[in-house]
Structure formats: C-alpha cells, structure tokens
Design a protein around this nucleic acid. Structure first.
Length: 489
RNA sequence: CGGGACGUAGCGCAGUCCGGUAGCGCACCUGAAUGGGGUUCAGGGGGUCGCGGGUUCGAAUCCCGCCGUCCCGACCA
C-alpha cells in the first residue's frame, strides 16, 4: 500500500520522523546491546567524509594523530576532582580480566584527558617541547540512561584533540582557534549554521576553566551542541604533574586544551536538512553527489541508455573541480525496480542531484536534472552537463546553508522579553531566545526547572544583539552577560 | 530510578476483552506481462506467539513470576 511507504511528517512527530529516516535511509540500526548503535555503510560513508575533512583541517593547523588506550585506571579519573565528579556516574568499569578480579578496576574511557595528560607528562621536559598538538580518533563509552540514534548512544565515535601549551594565552588562542575550525566545518561542509560562544559554569566540561561550544538549531527548534572546545587551564597539568622548564629556567605547569566532535554530527545533519521525503545531504558530504537513473522499456533501449549513462559519467569524471575532487556519480542500473521507485529511494537517501536519462532524452541530446533540496527539475543539454552540474552542486551547498540560517533566525528572539512571554515561547514553538543574565547560577537553574530551557552559550560578539540586554530575564537585576536560551538535545 | 505503553514471520501490525491449535500488509522466492514518479497478476517459502511456571480436555488469549524494548521525566556530546 502506497501510504505505508510515506514517512511520518516532521511537523506531526519530529522524533518519530527522525528515527524513521535514520533507519529507513539505512544510516544506522539498533544493535543487540541496549543503547549501542550500529552505523551502516551509508551512515558511515557520510561520517567518513566528515572525518576526512576534519582531519585535513586538523593537519593544516599543525595537529598530529595518535592513539591512546581504551582502558583508564580508575585512580586516573580521580586525580582531577571536578572531572571525576562529572564523569564517574556514567562510566563503564571493567573489574575482571583473564578470569581474575583486577587489583584496580579499569574504566572504559568516557573521554581521554587523564590517560593522555599522563603520557604528556612523560613527553614534555622543556618549553621547547611545547606546544604539543595531538588528536585522537576513537570510540568512547558513557553510560547514558536514555539513548537516541547518533545523538546519544552508550558508545560513540569521535575525535578528541588534546594540546599542551606554555602559557594561558596560547592555550586560550588554541581553544578559540579549534572552535573556529569546527564552525568552518559545520557551516562550510555540513551547511549547518551554528552560534558559537561560552558555556555557563554549570554547563561547562567537568574539569575545564572555560568551555566553548557550537550550537545548531534543529527543525524542532531545539538546540544541538554540535562541538565543544575547552580551555582546561592547568587543572589537569597539576593533577598529572605535567610540568616543563621555562625559558627563564623555572618550572611551570602546562596549559591544556581539549576539543571534540562526534558521530552526533550525522544526527545533526539529518535534523537540520531532512524533509518529509527523507534525508538531504549537502553535496560536500554526499558520498554520491549525482545518481543517474536510466529509463528504458525494451532491451535494445536498455543497452542504448546504459551505454549513454556510462559515457556521460565518464565525461563528468573528467570535469575539473579545483578543491572538491572529481564528481561522485552512481548509475542505478537495477532491473528489478521501476524508475519511479528508484526516485523515491534516492530521495530518501538524500543524494543531491538525480539525473533522469531515457531514450527520448538521448535522441534530444539532453538529460533531466533534478535537485534534491528544492525538487526543481531542469532539462540540460548533454554538452553543457559538466558545467551545469558543478555549478548546481555549489549553488545547493550555499543555498542549503542560507536556508538553514534563515530558518534559525526566523525562530530566534532578541530584545526585551518578560519572563512570562519567555515561558510561553518555551512551552510552545521553542527557539533561541537571547536575553540578559545576572550571572547567578540560581536564576539559571530556576529557569531550567520552570521551562527545561538552558543557557546554550553566552554568544560570541558577532552573535550578540545590537542592544545589550540590561536586566536578567529571571530576577530583573542588572545583566552581566547576554545568554542564548533554548531547549536542547 | 519514577510514570506510561508494548513484546505474534525480516519489518509494520490484527487476533487477547469472550480459550478451540495463527492471520494481514510490506519485504523475500518462482513465472508471465509491464516499464518517463512507489507495476500488475498468479503461485510459493518463512513464526516453539519474549522466557518460565500455573489453570484447563485444550492457552497467543486467563493467572503468577521474570526478561526485554520504546515513549515521557531526572542525567548527558
């Protein structure tokens, strides 16, 4: 029955829609282990492209990849007081090995600060060894109570950068720089606009001096923390004796930063760009940018059309694109499906451009080119195909970002707002609300209790309102900062 | 850990109230026709009804216990 094939609409039930898209587009599946997710080839293909792009950006900023152990002695976590308090409740702990009870339990890493800075302490002697710029691609485990595909799973894949510097300012600059790298990636590759800024004390990373974050708005108007970057100060250096000899001859503790993004980004991509037909993948991240659907009735047409399709693909592969490599094109030559069924499938999977190619097109030296984001069809001469398609892909990349940004701004509120009005917003459609904050944790927690909204960030200057808020949203006392409030994932 | 719902074929479900030996749609296999937006027809394969116990001539159905999953809260990338 045709109706069974339709997706749940986003408007009706965003969560159900999200789960259905992830499962039906074959990005991921539930595993036999509760809370753990299996990432299927289609989902991993997107993650792989994300990885490659990020890794190139890390290399370009001087970072090198390394790998550290999965197991962390329990005592390591305990060395930094706030850190253990933050992470201990959600760790998985190995108590037995080789059939015997271990003398000291091993924690499966929830994050690797402790084990990495223990090693840094061995590697750093002098200021000449600094800065030390390391990145690790790894899996981590956090024993969450409730899980959600890609967004919150017990085990997840991520990268975690860890650096050591000689001065506070240098570490601070690093933390800010990597936040910028994340923003460039999220906006430039994912077409997902973000608000950057500083986390409040209560929301910052356990053990950090300051936490910065990229916050994106999903289509249900909730915020997704898409990436974080921490200035760890000397907290971990002191805990792990990460000391170095200064240029002046004395000794000092190093200054650390850490920063990470995870497979959560794949979920963010789905929730930013998906529509009622399924996924929409921005061209930069699409494992397949163009799918050619050949159309035929008879056998002689079939061979003629397929031959043309291969010829077109070969010519498109020749097209030079300065920084994007050659076009990624797939020909869907399956005999078992009608063209219409193929269209629906590729739309569900989010391939940016579909090319329909039938005998009539070939006779007319043309193809029908359809964009996934807007659904607009265009008849293109085969002679102009290379230029048309590369231009179209670039245009789609830009327009998807612009559309997402426009959507976010349409659901953002600035300027004076009463607490009652704020509560109504949060109980209703939600969105990002920029308002004053007195800086006290009491007001922050009260608002969270009332509305479930939290301070996502104190926005960086470019995101701040033209008129700085004068009063705290909650208590009305003078505001010390502008805070961006939203419900979050 | 509190509140709610559910567990029947690979997936989605009906059947449970009122007990009689398991069914529908999709998917899958075979054949034929079809083919520019989810093809049609015919035939076919596949289930110890979550697990354990009890009641009964007889249990998917009633009773007891356990396990698991999902959703809503508290916690979090």
């Amino acid at each position: 029955m045709a109706d069974d094939k339709k997706l749940t609409t986003r408007e009706a039930d965003f969560s159900a829609w999200y789960n259905e898209v992830v499962l039906r587009a074959e990005l991921a599946d539930y595993s036999p282990v509760r809370g753990c997710m299996v990432i299927r080839p289609d989902g991993y293909g997107i993650w792989e492209r994300m990885q490659r792009a990020l890794d190139d950006m890390f290399k370009a900023t001087g970072h090198r990849n390394a790998y550290f152990p999965l197991f962390i002695p329990q005592s390591f976590l305990a060395k930094e007081a706030e850190h253990v308090e933050g992470f201990a409740p959600e760790t998985a702990v190995v108590t037995h090995g080789g059939g015997k009870e271990l003398e000291e339990p091993l924690v499966v890493r929830p994050t690797s600060e402790t084990i990495i800075y223990a090693m840094f302490a061995k590697w750093v002697q002098s200021y000449r060894d600094l800065p030390l710029l390391i990145n690790q691609w790894a899996n981590v485990v956090r024993w969450e109570m409730r899980t959600r595909l890609f967004l919150r799973t017990l085990e997840f894949l991520w990268q975690e950068g860890h650096t050591a510097h000689a001065t506070h300012d240098e570490a601070q600059e690093e933390a800010r720089k990597m936040l910028g790298v994340y923003r460039t990636f999220m906006e430039g590759w994912m077409a997902m606009p973000v608000i950057t800024g500083l986390k409040s004390e209560s929301e910052k990373f356990a053990g950090a001096l300051r936490t910065y974050s990229c916050e994106a708005m999903m289509q249900d108007n909730k915020a997704l923390q898409a990436g974080t970057s921490h200035n760890l100060g000397q907290n971990f250096a002191k805990a792990f004796e990460l000391k170095f000899q200064t240029e002046a001859g004395g000794t000092d503790f190093a200054w650390n930063t850490s920063w990470g993004v995870s497979t959560r980004l794949v979920g963010g991509l789905v929730m930013t760009h998906g529509d009622d037909k399924g996924l929409r993948v921005p061209p930069m991240l699409a494992p397949t940018e163009v799918v050619i659907v050949p159309i035929w009735r008879k056998d002689e047409e079939r061979s003629r059309v397929l031959e043309a399709a291969h010829r077109i693909r070969a010519s498109l592969l020749e097209v030079q694109r300065s920084d994007r490599g050659s076009l990624r094109i797939h020909i869907d030559a399956r005999d078992s499906m009608k063209p219409g069924a193929k269209y629906y499938e590729w739309e569900l999977r989010g391939v940016p451009v579909r090319m329909e190619l039938g005998p009539r097109d070939i006779d007319a030296n043309q193809a029908v080119v359809v964009r996934r984001d807007t659904g607009v069809k265009k008849i293109v001469s085969l002679d102009a195909l290379g230029g048309e398609i590369t231009t179209l892909l670039e245009q789609m990349q830009d327009e998807m970002l612009a559309a997402a940004r426009e959507r976010r701004e349409a659901h953002s509120m600035r300027g004076p707002i009463t607490y009652d009005a704020f509560r109504q917003v949060m109980e209703g459609a939600g969105g990002f609300v920029y308002a004053g904050w007195c800086g006290r944790a009491g007001c922050e927690s009260q608002i969270k209790e009332d509305t479930k909204a939290t301070i996502r960030v104190m926005p960086d200057e470019e995101f701040r309102s033209p008129e700085a808020p004068v009063a705290c949203l909650m208590c009305g006392q003078p505001a010390t900062a502008e805070a961006m409030w939203a419900k979050a994932y």
